[in-house]
Design a protein around this nucleic acid. Sequence first.
DNA 1: TCCCCAAGGGTGTGTTACAACCGCTCGTGG
DNA 2: CCACGAGCGGTTGTAACACACCCTTGGGGA
Lengths: 99, 99
Amino acid sequence: MSELDRTIHEPARLRILTILSGVDVSDFNFLFSTLGLTKGNLSSHMDKLEKAGYVEVRKSFNGRVPHTEFVITDAGRTALSDYWREIDAIRSLHGKGGD
Amino acid sequence: MSELDRTIHEPARLRILTILSGVDVSDFNFLFSTLGLTKGNLSSHMDKLEKAGYVEVRKSFNGRVPHTEFVITDAGRTALSDYWREIDAIRSLHGKGGD
DNA sequence: TCCCCAAGGGTGTGTTACAACCGCTCGTGG
DNA sequence: CCACGAGCGGTTGTAACACACCCTTGGGGA
């Protein structure tokens, strides 16, 4: 009965990871405006994802303006697809006998 | 950006509701042994599901032995399928542009 | 030139919510 | 009288989210 990965299960992070799994790279502002989180909140979610090893954070400079980009890691991809597998497993609990 | 129903999103309750959606009726002991939760924990989850109107609790007596059964309500079924719809929506965020 | 403000990208704090566990209870059957 | 079914209540710990604030840079106006 492997438990769902709580790092991923949180809706905000699930959205983030799923988005990242579909693009090569995404920047702070895109996620910020897409997700409707506060910057602080987004920042701490990204922090958590980075600490879990699911995303790589790339800080660059556009001239002198800091620019933060995020890339999903292999571990992140793996964890995400495991997560979806788990979700599907739960979904298919529908139909078990139990009376 | 409708938010996921947190009542359902909790893994234990997601499993419970999904199981209930596939059987006519399920009793306390079945869920207890299936899910591997403590009784107190299971009880409080069921309480939350009942308060949300997602399950109906049927307390009967087998002779004099209390027997508790749970049935998913229409509201529960609706909320659950909405939930799966939402999950699918998130899942399909995969593929949005954002560079 | 100086001033001020906005925007990018955060940090730190506090509140609120809630999951999970434990111990207790209360009734019943053996 | 002991165990079991079923559940309640309290506690603990953690986490999300908001909010307020910070620092830096770029740009506009007087």
